[in-house]
Simulated scan of single mutants.
Amino acid sequence: MLPIAKLEAVERRFKELEHLLCSPAVLSDPTQMTRMNRERTELEPVVAAFNRLRELERRIAEDREALSDPELAELVEAELPELEVERDRLANEVQILLLPKDPNDARNTIVEIRSGEGGEEAALFAADLFRMVCRYAEGKRWKVEILNLSEASAGGYKEVIALVTGQDVYSHLRYEAGVHRVQRVPATEAQGRIHTSTATLAVMPEADDVDVQIDDKDLEISIAASGGPGGQGVNTTNSAVQIKHIPTGMIVKCQDERSQLKNKSKAMKVLRSRLLELEQRRQEEALSAERRTMVGTAERAQKVRTYNFPQNRVTDHRIGLTLHKLDRIMEGDLEELIAALRAHRQAELLQRGGQAIVA
């Protein structure tokens, strides 16, 4: 049953915003104009779908009346089922559009990928996952900026932290969070045996300064020469920055830039986002004991997705979806997976009457 009163209220607010956005008072206030424009943009698809739905209802009513007309009965009997199917589809779309939006969905996102179980093969897989995310971001015309990178001795990444900026980044990448498991024959395997390794992928909305207040006295900052692969210029400058947040014990390192100031700025970005994610997790856990942690311990059993290279197969264990196009997925073709995960989340929201669910 559609909440008609709510839809009519949304429509009234949309018309009010259109009127206000033409007023001199709003046009002369950029902050207010931006806020109202954003609200109007959010309401527009709801109003458009509601109007299409009403038009369908009108046509269905006319067709039902025409059933009593011998000259029109055959025609409307063929058309009516199609209109009713479209009406039901559109009614479901309207319900989804009315679901509460996650305020983080439009934010830029910090992605952290770390190798888990499996030694050097896990580090190679972590690098493959990062490339997959980068290719997906490239298709979305998002920008990926590496904040910190720790390479493994035989190739691959022990850890990579990156900032992804663009339109609605978090709303898409949020579904990639968790433990990813790979099954394949490593390049170093002489016997051709399949090995199982893992990597963890954390996805956090980028925090603004106003979201997280950090007192300087709560920070312990140390500087050192950058280490690991990266060339002489990186290794010999005292540019690596480590920041410890004393109240939580959280430690962030950044050595990707030669500039100490740039590394400190990047490290603070990561720290703010981690603290925001920590606070949001606490709030969610207070509301529900069912919340799963984003990454877990990186043990093989705590997996959200399995990548089986010999069978060219990817299985997302959260929704039981298996796709036989691993080669394309590793090239960033994630749309089918993300669309299915989003649909599953929307179905849960609808089942709970539109109340926020725990991710």
Rank of each mutant, 00 (worst) to 15 (best):
Q311I: 09
R274G: 03
M268Q: 07
H180Y: 04
P24N: 09
V304Y: 00
L321R: 09
L350W: 03
D218I: 11
P186L: 07
P100W: 03
R184L: 08
R89F: 06
P186M: 06
T188H: 13
A9L: 07
L67R: 11
A356V: 13
D333W: 00
H324M: 03
M36I: 12
E93H: 13
I194H: 04
E18Y: 01
F130N: 13
A91V: 10
P186I: 01
L80I: 10
G353E: 10
I96H: 07
D105P: 09
Y307I: 04
I221S: 13
I96S: 07
L56Y: 10
P205T: 12
G353N: 06
Q32F: 04
H324A: 08
Q183D: 06
F14G: 01
L275A: 11
H317V: 08
T198M: 02
R114Q: 12
V212S: 05
V185C: 11
I319D: 11
S226Y: 08
L67W: 09
D316L: 05
Y175S: 04
D88N: 10
M250E: 15
G296K: 00
E331T: 05
D29E: 05
T109H: 03
A289V: 08
I319A: 12
A199R: 00
T236L: 14
K269I: 01
F309T: 08
R352A: 13
E74C: 02
D333T: 05
R292G: 09
A123H: 06
F14C: 02
D327K: 14
D215E: 12
F309D: 04
K143Y: 01
Q280R: 15
R345E: 14
I194L: 06
I223F: 15
A187D: 13
R274D: 05
Q311S: 15
G118W: 02
L2H: 12
H317Q: 10
K269P: 04
E44V: 01
N238P: 02
S68I: 09
R281A: 14
L17I: 14
D69F: 07
E55F: 06
L201T: 04
P100R: 08
D102E: 09
C22Y: 03
D105A: 15
M33A: 14
D211R: 07
E65P: 00
